[in-house]
């Protein structure tokens, strides 16, 4: 009766089942994505600010980390046994492809923010970025100093997490969560939210190109 398996694992499995052929191909979506600028990304909601810590332990405002760029913001925890690392892996692909696109390079900031401040200290986040071989020139890894600093950020983005506990009530170190990655424009509006099924570098970059074209048209 009592569920032992984390819901997050099931979400991963479900997402991968539906997206498996796409991920299995070399950077292939399995379909032709819509051309940048051929569609719109209406604002979903306002992004929220908060106090965060960078990998050196320096306190910063989250909006300052966005630095007037288009932002891909992901929430993870480093002890995650599944989807968080896959999200980081996809964002690695984004950084690789960004380097090959002169129009985009320099206009995009990747932010990975931990929702496990107890474990994910600034040093742990630094080591995580290093171990995952992430190019940190345009990608910042952040954590928070406390749950009190973290919770308003999670609430603002709608990133729901639940700490898992064993039969005795002791925290296992794992979290139940639905993977969400947010695309934020320069005006701090959320323009798309990706789950695992649509977390693909081609779609992410096409969406940013769409926003750039929108920006150009509005000038």
């Amino acid at each position: 009766m009592r569920l032992k398996r984390p819901v997050s694992v099931f979400i991963l499995l479900w997402g991968l089942l539906l997206g498996a052929p796409s991920f299995a191909k070399d950077n292939g979506l399995g379909y032709t994505p819509p051309a940048p600028g051929s569609y719109e990304l209406p604002p979903i909601k306002r992004a929220v600010d908060g106090i965060v810590l960078d990998t050196k332990g320096h306190q910063q405002r989250l909006f300052d980390c966005m630095d007037d760029k288009f932002v891909i913001l992901s929430f993870i925890y480093t002890n995650c046994s599944d989807i968080c690392h896959l999200a980081t892996y996809v964002l690695q692909q984004v950084t690789t492809e960004l380097k090959q696109d002169l129009m985009l390079s320099g206009q995009v900031r990747l932010i990975t923010l931990s929702f496990d401040p107890d474990h994910d200290t600034p040093e742990v986040m630094r080591r995580y970025a290093q171990a995952m071989e992430c190019d940190t020139s345009g990608w910042v890894f952040l954590t928070t100093s406390s749950h009190a600093e973290l919770q308003p950020i999670l609430d603002g983005y709608g990133q729901y997490i639940v700490r898992e506990r064993d039969a005795t009530g002791k925290a296992t170190g794992a979290f139940m969560h639905v993977l969400k990655v947010f695309l934020i424009d320069r005006e701090h509006k959320v323009r798309n939210i990706y789950s695992l099924s649509f977390l693909h570098s081609t779609l992410l970059l096409n969406d940013i190109r769409t926003l750039l074209l929108e920006e150009g048209a509005n000038r």
Partner: peptide, 28 residues
């Protein structure tokens, strides 16, 4: 990426089949 889709078939045992794939699911 390559292995879990197949594990999925054997581990999922509850919840409705009509739900959005973007939704958290019941596993028991």
């Amino acid at each position: 990426t390559m292995t879990l889709p197949f594990l999925f078939i054997y581990t999922a045992n509850a919840d409705e089949t009509c739900l959005s794939p973007y939704m958290a699911k019941i596993t028991g």
